[in-house]
């Protein structure tokens, strides 16, 4: 009898969290939407302008360019990231590798280091005349003369993608390893009994069963990748140089809202980003799902 009464205590346990959650999370989210319907510079009164900020957003070339840059950086990083992580996870699962725990721990380390510090480090390493990377590549004979990487749009994007790859492939490996180790050994034993070789086992047993993990990793990476801010912000001038190639969606949002004090328009950008992320996540989700049926 007491148990049934006790259940309502559950509300009391979750109540403090929800009060704070409504005040500090949901309310600001709704308030941002209200702001997106206004013109507001933080000083003068807000002016209600309906959905004008949104129509402006749709025809804003800089916004479209920021979507493209964000995607390019994410895409250039996610393909090798998942490729290398799959290879590593397969190697660790199917072979007796000495020092496996060490390698795993080591590959994960860059993920914990402050991104602002990492970006500044690469800013120095990539310095035109005096950066380590140019000096080293010239000594190796790979380059004839130093390249001013952070002045070339595509090179800058690729370097950001490389830093992202460097920071995340360890974590992706660990998640894939967990996914692979969850596959029952009996499946493999049956396949071996049928005379399947390693490659076949990987592609016909491991990969299909790993699909939920892969979907999870890709969607989470996409959501994070669309919000990339710290690295491109600190790597160059904080405004997306060179030629706005590092102006990701969130850097554009930050610039409009907190550099140019266009809080209304900035809020519309925030909602634009939110809708895009939701849309992209669904597309990726269905894309991978559909592939499964083929």
């Amino acid at each position: 009898m007491r148990l049934r009464n006790a259940n309502n205590y559950g509300y009391l346990f979750i109540l403090p969290f929800f009060i704070l959650f409504f005040i500090f999370n949901l309310y600001p989210i709704f308030y941002t939407f209200t702001l997106s319907l206004h013109e507001y510079d933080g000083m003068s009164d807000k002016v209600y302008i309906g959905f004008e900020n949104y129509s402006r957003l749709l025809s804003d070339d800089y916004f479209w360019k920021s979507i493209f840059s964000t995607w390019r950086i994410w895409f250039v990083n996610i393909i090798p990231q998942i490729g290398v992580a799959l290879w590593l996870a397969a190697i660790f699962t199917f072979n007796r590798i000495k020092g496996q725990a060490f390698f795993r721990a080591f590959f994960y380390l860059p993920n914990l280091v402050t991104m602002a510090s990492i970006a500044l480090l690469f800013n120095v390493l990539l310095d035109w005349q005096n950066g380590f990377i140019n000096q080293f590549l010239v000594i190796l004979g790979i380059l004839d003369e130093p390249i001013n990487w952070l002045r070339i749009p595509s090179a800058s994007q690729n370097w950001v993608a490389f830093i992202q790859f460097w920071m995340w492939y360890g974590q992706t490996t660990i998640l894939l390893l967990a996914g692979m180790s969850a596959i029952p050994t009996s499946y493999y034993e049956a396949a071996i009994a049928d005379g399947a070789n390693k490659t076949k086992i990987f592609f016909y047993i491991t990969m299909p069963l790993l699909r939920p993990t892969l979907i999870y990793i890709t969607v989470v990476s996409l959501i994070g990748g669309m919000q990339i801010f710290d690295i491109p912000m600190v790597l160059t001038d904080g405004a997306g140089a060179p030629e706005a190639s590092l102006q990701t969606m969130v850097i554009y949002l930050y610039g409009q809202a907190f550099r140019f004090n266009q809080y209304g328009y900035g809020s519309a950008i925030a909602y634009g980003i939110f809708v895009l992320i939701a849309l992209f996540s669904f597309i990726i989700y269905f894309f991978i799902h559909k592939k499964e049926e083929v």
């Binding site: 989210i29 941002t32 959501i223």
Partner: peptide, 19 residues
């Protein structure tokens, strides 16, 4: 609660700033 985990952090940032 789970659903709100998917919401990007920046969505409410300007509102939070004003708040």
């Amino acid at each position: 609660v789970l659903g709100t985990m998917m919401i990007p952090m920046q969505l409410g940032l300007i509102g939070y700033f004003e708040f």
